[in-house]
């Protein structure tokens, strides 16, 4: 890294991950610059979700380093990593189905103890996600997929994170909600939160991302700014229906 580039917020360097005998990541290196939206693209079984788990400490890499704000996360537990300022929107939302929407959102503030500020942030979430206002006392499991995604995002923001990691935030949503979610990610980002998201839907992700990486069977095969990747023929072939065009 040259002296002119500022230190990234999150950096994975030469990460190798194994499930038993099977290697999932091969010398994986990814950086997320402060204030950026970075997107990890890849097909099924490419190791995308495992990358999320590595960042969150749910899976331990066999070698390599993960640093956040200059300090290594390797060896920390998930709760410790969350306290460093990383919040997550897990794959398929993973809400606490039998708890109310209000309880779910407040669970996001579990690492905080400033009651009044938490209450203010809850109000702020309701302006950001106005639909949730009427749903607060409803069981989270009874919401539609799109509404659940809103709850999951509100929950992640409640910890006042410096970075949010999202695993396929648009998966299984109706087109209307997909647009809404992408817009919200942009809004969140504009308020200074960095975003690292894993996506299968490349065209959508590249619309909002600053940088992107393409992961194939555990190796980064392509990376760069979202703008250049959008025009890259390899991306078009692989993800944007290039085969049809040809």
């Amino acid at each position: 890294m040259t002296a002119s580039t500022p230190e990234p917020l999150l950096a994975l360097s030469n990460v190798n991950t194994f499930y038993g005998q099977a290697q999932v990541h091969f010398d994986l290196s990814i950086t997320v610059a402060r204030g950026h939206i970075v997107c990890l693209l890849g097909g099924n079984a490419s190791g995308k979700s495992t990358t999320m788990k590595i960042i969150l400490g749910l899976v331990k890499p066999r070698s390599g380093d993960v640093t956040f704000d200059g300090a290594s996360l390797v060896g920390l537990t998930t709760p410790q990593i969350v306290r460093r300022g990383i919040a997550s929107v897990p794959e398929a939302r993973r809400l606490f189905a039998d708890m109310s929407v209000r309880e779910n959102i407040l669970m996001g503030a579990f690492v905080r103890n400033d009651r009044e500020a938490i209450a203010q942030d809850l109000d702020k979430m309701l302006t950001l996600f106005p639909k949730l206002g009427q749903r607060l006392s409803q069981r989270a499991g009874s919401l539609s997929g799109g509404e659940q995604q809103m709850v999951a995002m509100a929950r992640a923001l409640m910890s006042r994170p410096r970075m949010v990691v999202m695993d396929e935030p648009t998966m299984g949503l109706s087109p209307l909600y997909v647009d809404r979610v992408l817009e919200l990610i942009r809004t969140i980002n504009q308020e200074g939160v960095s975003v690292f998201m894993v996506e299968q839907n490349a065209s959508l992700a590249l619309e909002i991302a600053h940088e992107a990486y393409v992961l194939q069977t555990g190796k980064i095969v392509l990376s760069g700014s979202a703008r250049t990747l959008k025009d890259d023929p390899r991306i078009r072939d692989a993800y944007l229906g290039g085969a049809e065009a040809a």
Partner: peptide
């Protein structure tokens, strides 16, 4: 309660 409903998600809340 959160852990009972989803252990991993609870860990991700800290």
């Amino acid at each position: 309660r959160a852990t009972a409903q989803d252990r991993d998600a609870a860990m991700q809340m800290g």
